[in-house]
Write a protein that binds this DNA or RNA. Structure first.
Length: 388
DNA sequence: AATACCTACAACCGCCTTTCG
DNA sequence: TCGAAAGGCGGTTGTAGGTAT
């Protein structure tokens, strides 16, 4: 269906930065008329040569009286990072937890400050995990050293594949967590939302809002303060958990028998907490900008298709050179995704490829078993029933 | 002093969902 | 029930100011 740009029919309307005079006109009109009935009609009524959409954006992002100007505080920074780790680029959702801040402002701040900050700290701002480029480089260098300078290519490829497998596992967990959050929390507690919960869990730094009472039905699914505290420690104490290492036991092998276990694994263990790009649950048919579609704006079931393995191999090759550490931050792969029905095929294919490799075969069979058990939420699991 | 480059952020674009006649 | 209008959202671009060469 689609629809034409709102200003297409208004050829000749002014674009670009607003002048103080225009601001005053818009402010005066809204003050006198008590807000806006129709943004499309507003420009004419206010005597502005702007399209309604431009007026709305100017009002919501700049002129609104309740907007807090000035730099972000450390608490706000932490909160943004935590919330971004939990929900990804859901700027409007994040903005609801930072009164006085607009989604646009938070988005800009993330893109210009926080993303670089995390990146420079060795954290991938997309996955909120240690940067994989550094891990691959380090693994390659270690292997080169161990081999006395022999070819490192096989080792690099292996690490790339294992990283890719980790990413795929994470995406499954991300989907599961959202399913659990939606299925358990929402119906039992209208008004309760995961965002608020996360904000409260974030060291009590929820700005200007009272922490909601967590409904009893989600007690066992509630993020504990310690979890996000642990997450913060990853940033501020440089206590970063390791990614899968060659020959080691993958972190996913930790018992994942409850929703809490899932979150534990994500926040404090093996997996990225959330984000976009590699971990982004982008649905098929994302916009021309590559942005998420509206269907992904609620906490609905997300797709968890892993990136293709061939990419992993290519990444290994890509880093096998002088520019190994110069990974561009914006190169965030956005794997095509599909509803869960497509996931099995994708993962079946990937698992088949993984099984071709003895080194990681045992790892993944246990992982899939755990996942399948988790999906069914079988009460027969001792750990699960004891926590419930 | 001039130019190129970088950074920050306001504003725009195009897609989506919701609303309403 | 349907389709158009309206509003919302996230990604991207444009621009002004600052800094480096």
């Amino acid at each position: 269906m689609g629809r034409s740009p709102c200003c297409e029919q208004d050829a000749g309307v002014k674009k670009g930065p607003w002048t103080p005079e225009e601001d005053k006109q818009l402010l005066d009109y809204i003050r006198e008329n008590g807000g806006h009935g129709s943004w499309r009609r507003l420009p004419k009524l206010a005597g502005l040569n702007r399209c309604g959409k431009s007026c709305r954006l100017r009002w919501t992002n700049y002129l609104r009286p309740d907007i807090k100007r000035g730099s972000f505080t450390a608490d706000e920074e932490k909160l943004i990072i935590s919330l971004h780790a939990a929900v990804g680029n859901k700027w409007s959702s994040i903005a609801t937890k930072l009164p006085g801040r607009t989604d646009n402002e938070i988005k800009n701040y993330w893109n210009t400050h926080l993303r670089k900050k995390l990146f420079n700290m060795g954290i991938d701002p997309v996955t909120h995990r240690p940067r994989t480029d550094l891990n691959i480089l380090a693994a390659g260098l270690l292997a080169a050293n161990a081999n006395g300078g022999a070819s490192t290519q096989p080792c690099w490829d292996m690490n790339a594949i294992k990283l890719q497998a980790d990413a795929a596992k994470f995406q499954i967990l991300q989907g599961l967590v959202r399913v659990l959050a939606t299925a358990t929390a929402t119906p039992a507690a209208p008004g309760f939302d995961l965002m608020t919960l996360l904000a409260v869990a974030n060291g009590g730094t929820l700005v200007g809002q009272q922490p909601p009472a967590a409904p009893a039905s989600v007690d066992h699914h509630t993020l504990s303060r310690s979890r996000l505290g642990q997450y913060h420690q990853q940033y501020y104490d440089d206590d970063l958990p390791p990614l899968t290492t060659s020959g080691g036991t993958p972190p996913v092998s930790k018992v994942i028998s409850t929703a809490d276990g899932l979150l534990d694994s994500m926040v404090g263990g093996a997996f990225p907490a959330a984000g976009d790009g590699l971990s982004s649950p982008e649905p098929i048919g994302a916009g021309a900008h590559g942005g998420p579609s509206g269907s992904n704006r609620n906490n609905t079931v997300v797709a968890v298709t892993p990136p293709p393995l061939v990419e992993a191999a290519n990444q290994g090759h890509r880093y096998n050179g002088a520019a190994a550490t110069s990974e561009v931050m914006s190169s965030e792969p956005t794997p095509a995704s599909s509803p869960l029905d497509g996931t099995s095929n994708a993962f079946g294919c990937m698992n088949q490829q993984l099984q071709d490799d003895d080194l990681i075969n045992d790892v993944d069979s246990s992982f899939w078993k755990e996942i399948l058990e988790q999906i069914s939420l079988a009460p027969s699991s001792d750990n699960y029933s004891s926590e419930m």
